[in-house]
Amino acid sequence: MIFTTQDIQKTFKTGEVAEEILKGIDLSLTEGEITALVGASGSGKSTLLTIAAGLQAASGGEIHFDGGELTAMNQEQIRKIRAQSFGFVFQSPHLVPFLTAEEQLLLMLETAGSPLSKKQRREEVDKMLHSVGMAHRKTAYPASLSGGEKQRVAIARAIVHQPKLLFADEPTASLDSTKSHEVMGLLQQLTKTLNIATLMVTHEEDMLAYADRVITMKDGRFA
């Protein structure tokens, strides 16, 4: 297990009212596997994903990753882990509008502090774009890419620095059925070949076929 959580809790306070979103979650992720979180809206699946990814703090519990305790780290230490060991695919591609597809990936390598030389980085980027079928569009800016192409570039950016964990928050929500299957096939293939532990939130039942493990959430707990 590269990633585990113990008794994760999350409470949001609105004035005097406290709402418990996560009620003691124990989760473990394994390399080479896609774990899918499913559940109704408000069940807490996206909150769990963002806490696991270090994008927001838990109200209680522990998160362990690669021998370290994420919940005991400061913001800078978490940022470093996000940059070097985590990859993110969001519902929207969230590409940087003024960078080409190639530059999006080069920025990720630079942010992760890749030890590769400039030439090696370019080669790595070419290889990654080729693996997501976007090598022919490497000089294109996001504005000239289709929705599916943008999400492919976003996936390539998420894994170009060879993260150990990939977080995917409804990665196919903005795509049509054909493109959704293409993207999920790609995520499955990359998870296996690069031995990444992938945690995915989805509400599309069709996409569960690509997951190795499906966890259903209800009212802040695993059902």
């Binding site: 994008l55 940022r79 940059a83 969230h94 942010t111």
Partner: peptide, 12 residues
């Protein structure tokens, strides 16, 4: 929004 995304992927 852009700066938030850059921060999310780890840009200092």
């Amino acid at each position: 929004g852009l700066y938030g995304i850059l921060k999310a992927i780890g840009v200092k």
